[in-house]
Design a protein around this nucleic acid. Structure first.
Length: 484
RNA sequence: GGCCCUAUCGUCUAGCGGUUAGGACACCAGGUUUUCAUCCUGGCAACCGGAGUUCGAUUCUCCGUGGGGCUACCA
């Protein structure tokens, strides 16, 4: 079984394309098949080398490796359509079809075609090319070519072809009336191949047996089937994936916000989370267990469970899933993932701690990170910087009755010898019993006075990390400035 | 307009003739946590409408309606 993923390098790798790539990849892995990567850069105006680079890098980052592609060619290359134009593949194939009577030269001008189309629209009929050029004699065609008239090549739709039935692994049978198709262009007047032709020529030559792509290609399929038939080639299996929708239920696009993989990477998403989330868009495993690593995904994959209706992309759930994956990371993996996202302030802050303390800091913070850049706000609480602390105080309001607790706390820490987490714990416990106050009444003011924040990780560990000097200074400062 | 696809909680979905219509995200409440988050428990919330087939339709068929895609010498 041979699969292919065929993106156009007309933009950065899009999240919708990734989903298509993913399903091809999983399907191929599941069946032990081969995945081909083909770059469809026949649109010379819009295709850019930097986009191809972006696509290749994005796929690599996500771990969606192809068995054959421009970077690791197999036996059926080249793997870029531009190179296949250059080596004359499409031209040669089109001429072959003219020979066999499946295609013909068309000399219709743009004006003529526009007129035909408008007339059809006015009449409320589907537009079908009239086939005027088909009536030309061999000599007339030769004369036109000799005269250098602009020409295209059209595929001749067999007159009594009737219904074209495609077998779709997701949707079952889909039927089209071939009479509504019209002889369509396979070679444009500039000599380049039209999409519906290039794709089929490539898929035949690359021996592709399974085509998994977006639902937006369904209406191209009957034309492509006709091309297969013109070449007497086997029509592959199709699986048209439901489209991914934005919150407004229209096709997901840039106007719905960040949609390129690069942007997701920069926003702090993990490739595993993206893969897992995307796999659930339009598909569910039979056991209903949503968390799946790559191997589980490959193992559980089943084409028949792909759903038919479009799926709205739920950004919130992706974020949630990302947080789940972050929590599951080992300490080393977490630090490695988060390091590129560390702000200058965070780096300075961390340098104030020993290697061992840094490890504790990261551990304390890991579960509150959903997106990698969250690390910076999570780290703030560990800041030893006095001015930042003072700035934070202005956002808090202390009540007079907090003063007693803080004074008692200050007295105790100044003479405290066991500055470990358990030592602090014992100290707080003693304040609780001594004052008879509830935990909230005691710990809230201490947290505020030591960190300048109303919330954060486990307090005793935090105080232990901050150290006697800083904690002492901060509490006395709060007592002097806020509660005197 | 034409062709095609599609229709279960707000969202992703399970269901494949008989179910208290299940799960996940989000949301709400309670519990744990000093607080926030995490975590645990509970709750709210859905079968688009109408015909038919059937003893029985969310499930099958048809017709509407809604949504989406395509309608190029773009891919």
């Amino acid at each position: 079984m041979r699969f292919r993923f065929a993106p156009s390098p007309t933009g950065n790798l899009h999240i919708g394309s990734v989903r298509t790539a993913l399903f091809n990849w999983v399907y191929a892995k599941h069946t032990g098949g081969t995945l081909i990567l083909r770059i469809e850069d026949t649109d010379l105006q819009r295709s850019k080398p930097e986009f191809e680079v972006n696509i290749l890098e994005g796929l690599k980052w996500l771990g969606l490796d192809a068995d054959e592609g421009p970077e690791n060619p197999g036996a059926v290359g080249p793997y870029r359509q531009s190179e296949r134009i250059d080596n004359g593949t499409y031209q040669r194939c089109a001429e072959q079809l003219i020979e066999s009577g499946h295609a013909y030269y068309c000399f219709a001008t743009e004006a003529e075609l526009t007129a035909e189309r408008e007339a059809a629209e006015k009449a409320g009929k589907p537009y079908v090319y009239s086939g005027a050029s088909l009536k030309l004699t061999k000599d007339e065609v030769a004369a036109n070519i000799a005269a250098g008239l602009p020409k295209t090549i059209r595929l001749r739709v067999p007159v009594n072809r009737g219904e074209i039935v495609i077998q779709d692994q997701v949707r079952g049978e889909i039927r089209f009336d071939s009479a509504l198709l019209g002889d369509f262009i396979i070679i444009k007047s500039d000599g380049s191949a039209a999409y519906n032709f290039a794709v089929v020529v490539d898929d035949i030559e690359m021996k592709v047996t399974h085509i998994v792509r977006g639902e937006d290609h369904i209406s191209n399929t009957p034309r492509q089937v006709l091309v297969y038939e013109a070449f007497s080639a086997d029509v592959p299996y199709f699986a048209h994936l439901p489209i991914i929708l934005g919150p407004d239920k229209s096709k997901l696009s840039k106007r719905h916000g960040a949609q390129s993989v690069t942007e997701y990477k920069e926003a702090g998403f993990l490739p595993e989370a993206i893969i897992n989330y995307l796999s659930l868009l339009g598909w569910t495993p039979a056991d209903g267990v949503e968390f799946m690593d790559r191997d589980a995904l490959v193992q559980k994959f089943d084409v028949t469970r792909i759903s038919k209706s479009g799926a709205v992309f739920d950004h919130q759930k992706l974020v949630w899933m990302n947080g789940q994956y972050i929590r599951k990371m080992t300490h080393d993996a977490f630090v490695a993932a988060v390091t590129p996202f560390l702000s200058e302030d965070s780096r300075v802050l961390l340098s104030g701690y020993s290697h061992d303390s840094q490890k504790i800091v990261f551990e304390m913070v890991q579960e509150s990170v959903a997106l990698l850049p969250d690390i910076n706000t999570a780290l703030e609480v560990f800041s030893q910087d006095g001015s930042a602390f003072n700035a934070r105080l202005s956002g808090l309001s202390f009540h007079a009755d907090m003063a007693d607790v803080l004074r008692l706390f200050l007295d105790k820490i100044l003479v405290l010898t066991d500055w470990s987490e358990s030592g602090i714990d014992a100290l707080i416990e003693s304040i609780l019993t001594q004052t008879g106050l509830g935990k909230g009444k005691v710990l809230k003011p201490i947290r505020m006075a030591t960190t300048g924040l109303g919330s954060g990780p486990h307090l005793p560990a935090l105080i232990s990390l901050l150290g006697q000097t800083i904690v002492g200074e901060r509490v006395s400062h709060v007592l002097d400035s806020q509660l005197s």
